[in-house]
Amino acid sequence: MIIHHPLLGPRDAAEFVYKGDVTLIDRPDWQAEDAAEAFHDYLYLRDNPAGEHRELWFHEQGDRSWLVVTRNTLTHEITKVELARDVARERGRSR
């Protein structure tokens, strides 16, 4: 596979390490009322789509960027690659 790094262009997937669903960015609030429940869902519940999937990849043998890759699990077509840091901010993460 080839991942089109938003800063570096096409790079072989061999340079990357896969982590998993993009929702791993949405780490729950530890002080919330339902923290235990929320962490359970965060840790163990994933969608398993036959189709478009947003997922985290780490450019370990590259610039050490975490990326959010939108990949079709049926065709492996990659339609979008973003810097995970930007996605994290979009999803409301900050400090």
């Binding site: 570096l8 072989d12 340079e15 043998q61 590259g62 610039d63």
Partner: peptide, 10 residues
């Protein structure tokens, strides 16, 4: 300049 992997070595 690019960082990559060759024979398992970064």
């Amino acid at each position: 300049a690019a960082r990559t992997v060759m024979e398992h070595m970064g």
